[in-house]
Design a protein around this nucleic acid. Structure first.
Lengths: 218, 218
DNA sequence: CCCTGTGTTGACTGACCAGTCAACCCGGGG
DNA sequence: CCCCGGGTTGACTGGTCAGTCAACACAGGG
């Protein structure tokens, strides 16, 4: 059905609606991967979701793997740029961490399926794509660690913990909250998203202890 | 290690060496799953690793899935018991969290393959086993949240954050550190394990901020 | 008008693997 | 001595897909 049909709507005149089939396939893949997971999802599911013939997927991508790789890299590079940009500004470290949290949470708010796929299939997949993209993933941790390190140097953050660990704990907390939403363990909604941002930063920066003296003496 | 290294040797006389084939299969499955991941691992890999015929796996387990389910439940139930036991003691909340962290880190120290399989294939697998065992996984979060809640009630922890979020952030930090080891991103060793315990608790309880006033005013 | 190449189609193939099953081994009870 | 049945074996089947490929659509240049 609808091979040369410009969909129902008139399709943007400047876009021939014929060469962003690639984009359509990528978008369809996000939905398909999110629905059943990368392994359980067949290439035909992607093609069906995109209203495109099976073989066309292989015209634009060498393999099913390459589709996921593309989705991940597209998004992760944006994340790296955003973190770099945030770090470039003259803000307190805590505000920088809030901005990063905010960006990631909003990424989920804006496109939960894409974030689900990236986290579940790449970021946390130690046996497959996670290994492949390890170097790229680590770059994000390194940028965060850099923020912490500078804050420790100027006295904004205490140095009870190495920057690397702080980065891991911080990012781990974020991902765990996203995982909570992905698993339907946590309620979703505008309020929840904003509250989550504040809570994550508050937990990692402020800590749970009521009495600062106990540990701060270190 | 040294769980079922009978093989050629005469096998412990009191153990008929004939009915813990089941155990041998489970142990072999841990190794096989850890090596290539659940999906890429074939049932024949498990059988080979256990030095047992292919069909015997199906004598003791209904399916490949059931093998993983068994491994996960065995271990997770121990975790739930341990957390319950820790919570029963009269300790400051911070010490309770340290004890939990310690147990999980030591679980990894003692049997990294098993923990890798549980985390990678179950705990973080939102599309397959994670969904199946959601309820069981949540019990752990609930127990931790309970600890936080009590600490907030008696004033040990401040209540800037809901207990549920604190539990998520805390457990997320732990899992992220384990993931660091699993991915070979973090150096492993006796010292590293103990340091990690301290750092995780220090980050979550103590927080990164040097100046308590900023947030504590809330 | 045909020719050419990019875009597009979907039937087909080859490989892979979970799970089945018929037969075998062997200890012990009759 | 045979029989019984749980434990054990591994060849085989059925189904599933990733990836291939031959053919088709069609725009635009000659």
């Amino acid at each position: 059905m609808a091979s040369a049909h410009d969909s129902e709507a008139g399709a943007t005149p400047d876009k021939p609606a014929g060469l962003d089939k690639r984009r359509m396939i990528l978008d369809a893949a996000v939905i398909a991967f999110a629905k059943r997971g990368f392994h359980a999802c067949r290439v035909s599911d992607i093609a069906d979701e995109a209203n495109v013939a099976y073989g066309l997927v292989y015209h634009y991508f060498r393999s099913k793997d390459e589709v996921l790789d593309t989705l991940f890299l597209e998004r992760w590079n944006v994340l790296l740029e955003v973190i770099t940009e945030i770090d470039r500004q003259a803000l307190p470290a805590r505000d920088k961490l809030y901005a990063i949290t905010s960006f990631i949470v909003d990424s989920y708010r804006y496109d939960p399926d894409l974030m689900k796929v990236i986290i579940v299939e790449v970021t946390r997949a130690a046996n497959s794509f996670g290994r492949t993209h390890l170097k790229t993933i680590r770059e994000a941790y390194a940028l965060i660690a850099g923020i912490v390190e500078k804050a420790q140097a100027d006295g904004t953050f205490r140095d009870a913990v190495t920057p690397g660990f702080a980065a891991l704990a911080f990012y781990g907390a974020i991902e765990q909250v996203l995982t909570g939403w992905i698993f339907d363990m946590l309620p979703r909604g505008e309020e929840e998203f904003d509250q989550a941002k504040a809570f994550i930063v508050e937990t990692i920066c402020g800590g749970l202890d009521a009495d600062p003296s106990s540990a701060r003496a270190v």
